[in-house]
C-alpha cells in the first residue's frame, strides 16, 4: 500500500501534541528554567483567568516569559509555519520536490538588503531598518528573477528555476563584494544574521511579521485544491481549464512574500521549507488539502522545537536555530526517506 496515507484521526492529534509540547518546551527552557505551574499561572494571570492565582511567580519569571520567550516562540511559530507552507507551494508550482522557498532568489536578495543595511549603518538607526531593507532586497530579487525568465508574457518554469539560481549567484557575489570592504566586527554581525536565529526577537518582530505571514498562509490554504491540479504540470492543468499563468504568478508572489518576511524577521533559516513539506508528504500524502495544514503545523513546531533545544544543548552558549534545524532535521529526514523507499518496494 501507499506510504503517506495516515488518516487525520492519527496525524492531527500527534501534530497537535507535538505542537503544544514544542511551545511548552520553548517557554520553559533557557537561561533560567521555569516550572510548568509558573508558566500556566503567568498565562492565566495575563489573560485574566481565575486559576492558579496562589502560585507565586517572580517578576523576573514573568518578564522572561512575557517579554522574551513568548514573542520569541510566536516568531518561531510564524516563521516556521510560513516556511513550511511556502515550501509546499513552491514545490507545487515548480512540480519539483527539490524546490525550496528560497529558490527564486528570495534569500540571496534578502542577504544583499541586510548587508547593505549593516554596511551603511542604518541597521543601527531603528529596529525595523534591517528587516525592511532585507525585505526590499528579497522582493527586488524575485521581481528580477521573474522578469529575466519572462518571454512573450509566458514564464517557462525551467527557465524561472535557472534564472533563480543565476540571480542567487550574482547576488551572492554582490554580498561578498560588499563584505570584503567591511570591518571584521560588521562582518561578524552579518554572519550572525545569515545563520538565522530567534534570539532577541521581541513583540515588534511579531507585529512586523504577523500580517504578511498569516495573510499569505490563509491565501495558500484557500488555493490547496488548485495546487493539486497545478502540480501535475502545465499541459495537464490547462487541459482541465486552469488559467495556469495567473495562478502560478499569484502563488509565487504570495509564497515569496511569506518567505521574505520570514527571512527578514529571523534571518536565513534553511531546511524547514525544503524538508518539512517532504516529511509531511511522506506522512499524509500529496493532497494539498491535507499537506498544507499539516506542513503549517509541523513547520512551526519544528522550528520552535529546534530553537528550544538549541538554547539548552550547549548551555550557557546558545546554538542558533538555523544550525539546529539542519542538525535535527537531516537524520530524521534520511530515516524517513530510507523507510519510505523500503515500503515502496
Amino acid at each position: 500500500m501507499r506510504v503517506g496515507n495516515l488518516p487525520n484521526a492519527i496525524v492531527l492529534p500527534i501534530l497537535t501534541v507535538a505542537f503544544l509540547g514544542a511551545v511548552f518546551l520553548s517557554m520553559a527552557c533557557g537561561q533560567i528554567d521555569i516550572p510548568t505551574e509558573n508558566i500556566l499561572a503567568t498565562f492565566c494571570r495575563s489573560v485574566g483567568l481565575p486559576f492558579l492565582s496562589e502560585v507565586p511567580v517572580t517578576p523576573e519569571q514573568e518578564t522572561v516569559l512575557l517579554h522574551i520567550r513568548l514573542p520569541r516562540t510566536l516568531v518561531g511559530l510564524m516563521v516556521g509555519a510560513g516556511l513550511g507552507t511556502s515550501g509546499v507551494v513552491m514545490q507545487g508550482i515548480f512540480s519539483n520536490p527539490l524546490a525550496d522557498p528560497g529558490v527564486i532568489g528570495v534569500s540571496s536578495g534578502a542577504a544583499v538588503g541586510a548587508v547593505a543595511a549593516i554596511a551603511f549603518g542604518f541597521s543601527e538607526t531603528s529596529l525595523f531598518a534591517l528587516p525592511i531593507s532585507a525585505l526590499c532586497g528579497a522582493l527586488a530579487a524575485v521581481i528580477l528573477t521573474v522578469f529575466l525568465a519572462m518571454r512573450h508574457g509566458k514564464i517557462p518554469m525551467m527557465t524561472l528555476l535557472l534564472a533563480g539560481v543565476v540571480v542567487g549567484m550574482m547576488l551572492g557575489a554582490v554580498t561578498a563584494g560588499i563584505l570584503t570592504v567591511l570591518s571584521e566586527q560588521i562582518i561578524h554581525q552579518y554572519l550572525f544574521w545569515t545563520i538565522g536565529g530567534l534570539d532577541y526577537r521581541r513583540w515588534d518582530h511579531v507585529i512586523m511579521g504577523v500580517g504578511p505571514i498569516l495573510g499569505g498562509i490563509a491565501v495558500m490554504l484557500l488555493m490547496a485544491r488548485h495546487l493539486n491540479v497545478l502540480v501535475l504540470g502545465d499541459v495537464e492543468a490547462r487541459a482541465v481549464g486552469m488559467p495556469v499563468a495567473k495562478y502560478r504568478l499569484g502563488l509565487l508572489a504570495v509564497a515569496s512574500l511569506v518567505t521574505a518576511t520570514g527571512v527578514c524577521i529571523s534571518g536565513n533559516i534553511g531546511f524547514v521549507g525544503l524538508v518539512v513539506p517532504h516529511m509531511m508528504r511522506l506522512i499524509v500524502g500529496p493532497d494539498h488539502r491535507r499537506l498544507l495544514p499539516s506542513s503549517l503545523l509541523a513547520g512551526g513546531t519544528f522550528l520552535v522545537f529546534c530553537d528550544a533545544v538549541g538554547r539548552v544543548i550547549a548551555y550557557p552558549t546558545e546554538v542558533r536555530v538555523g544550525i539546529m534545524t539542519a542538525f535535527i532535521g537531516t537524520p530524521y529526514f534520511l530515516w524517513l526517506l530510507r523507510r519510505s523507499r523500503n515500503t515502496m518496494q
Binding site: 501535475l232 499541459v235 482541465v240 500529496p286
Partner: peptide, 19 residues
C-alpha cells in the same frame, strides 16, 4: 504524462472535475 508526488488514482480522476 508523468505523475509525480505519489498521487493516487482517485486524486487524479478527481482533477477531471476541476472545470
Amino acid at each position: 504524462i508523468e505523475i509525480s508526488f505519489g498521487y493516487s488514482a482517485r486524486e487524479i480522476v478527481m482533477t477531471g472535475r476541476y472545470p
